[in-house]
Design a protein around this nucleic acid. Sequence first.
DNA 1: TTGTATGCGTTATCAA
DNA 2: TTGATAACGCATACAA
Lengths: 337, 337
Amino acid sequence: MNIYDISEKAGVSIATVSRVINGNAKVSEKTRQKILAIIEETGYTPNAFARGLGLNTMKTIGILCADCSDSYLASAIYHFERELRSHDYDVILCCTGYEQATKEKYLNLLMSKHVDAVILAGSNFIATGTAPGANDYIRDAAQEIPVIILNGFVDLPGVYCVLSDDMESVYNVTKTLLSQGATGPLFLSRSDSYSGLQKKSGFIRALKECGIKDGEKRVLSTPGSMEENTALLLKKASAGLKVDAVICSDDELAVSALKFAKQMKLSIPDEISIVGFNNSKLSLCCEPELTTIDNRLAYACASAVDLLMKVLNGEDVPGKLLISSNLVTRGTTKANS
Amino acid sequence: MNIYDISEKAGVSIATVSRVINGNAKVSEKTRQKILAIIEETGYTPNAFARGLGLNTMKTIGILCADCSDSYLASAIYHFERELRSHDYDVILCCTGYEQATKEKYLNLLMSKHVDAVILAGSNFIATGTAPGANDYIRDAAQEIPVIILNGFVDLPGVYCVLSDDMESVYNVTKTLLSQGATGPLFLSRSDSYSGLQKKSGFIRALKECGIKDGEKRVLSTPGSMEENTALLLKKASAGLKVDAVICSDDELAVSALKFAKQMKLSIPDEISIVGFNNSKLSLCCEPELTTIDNRLAYACASAVDLLMKVLNGEDVPGKLLISSNLVTRGTTKANS
DNA sequence: TTGTATGCGTTATCAA
DNA sequence: TTGATAACGCATACAA
């Protein structure tokens, strides 16, 4: 069943059928109704390939993420997909893992499928190290199609970044904990991704303002499993590190910190405060429930899609959109006086 | 940059270029190398639409899931995507939500995009109620392309189901808890999906075998939030329901049960045992850590993709694949003697 | 081993 | 308001 069959049944040319389907050009109401009726009756749907061939677009957005089983990224994808579909776009999903070469390979793969744009979900797509040209693959892609980045920032033409203000939110909560009397603050860092560095620098800035100079020394790299991270904290503590406030770059790390606190028999939040990140389900599963930073993921994803639609529509939009976060205070921090 | 450009540069016809790209027919090693070099140099990639037009396939699998932010489904999608990509298939993701009409709509949408097959991820795609014809949309789809169902079962031609043996695993763990002396077993059920019903019937069968006739009365429907479910349990307990063993259809429910136990000041696992389902991260975040049923999701997904590849290859495969689960014993149940 | 010619199902341009 | 026809880029049957 193709456009010729329909045109034949309707006694018109394929051009007219095409016009009705695409609804742009002028067609007499009478023939339109007739054609519509036949389409309905036959259940005809245009061949997406042929359409793509002509238009060189298939109304499809590629989403790359390192690992969609990560709860944060999974939520992001969920929001992206629903938003995009409401705009009649399909989503091709591509989980790249964390290796640079694979990221590049899959981005090129998606480009070759003629997606209309790509969304890089997660700050790990931005190289933060010194490797020269590590972000070239993004620049190259952006020369062909719009690139949206969630929670990462590079200043390149054709790249649009939507991110939460991680530096600010960590800065704020750190200041609060210090003002509540904490003298042994610690920051647990999952990785040196763009957002990881932002968080870290917010922490260090807050410390500096309160007269703690060597803030870097109070940043702990904790990329391992929950068990390993708890063990690391215990080791540090037994080596004499004082800890009475832990800010974490995700909720899982905060649970590690919680386990550490319990093993140390520290009372929470009197002797130790803990703050997580992402307001994930994990934050409700432990005891006490976690105070955590909610970075308004749903809002960010919706904004990103909105931005993208405008870009595809040729409108002028900002290259960077910064969204403030929201501290959700629960049982692992003292109530703010 | 298209196949004509390449053929011109190489001084051959487009047919020869096509042959080299597809690697099937005979081409002299010399011209092959020459063409390969030019392809490499120009970065040419064939237009997927044009290719799809001719072949009527785009090596793309549609995955439908109700909600990919659900941690279980997110993991499933992750495994599917990686497996499929290793077979050079793309994945179009589609989150349908839980409404029947939307599921049908999106399944048809994917069909119209000429996906080569669809995977229905999650048992909620199977209607278990009495609504006649509620699974017709699956039957119709399966007449056109292979349909794979994860964790659900319907006996229809062209439908291939991969599922964990939920009935058996719940039956087994319930028997164990009863043999350890439990007299107030409870099953917390999230929904009456196919797998939900399987789990429930495993529970009831175990009770029956131990002389507890009215097993249905010990099944609690707990579709709400963690907080609501905990509250429901507290209410039931204060109304006199005896509870000393709780088997849950997911880990989140188990956390609700854990919170209930703590509020009741019941010692775990001496006075109450709790078993979760899925071996998700949640099971490690609470205290004590959850005993939970691991249904080998990664294995199931890999098997499903393997099955699909065989189906697409015209091989004969079973319509149902049942995978046994694995009980992961942690702190919320007594060690088995 | 290679080349020629045709079809795949649309959209869009131009003419009527 | 309509119709005829040329792209779009590729795979492949058939010819050489």
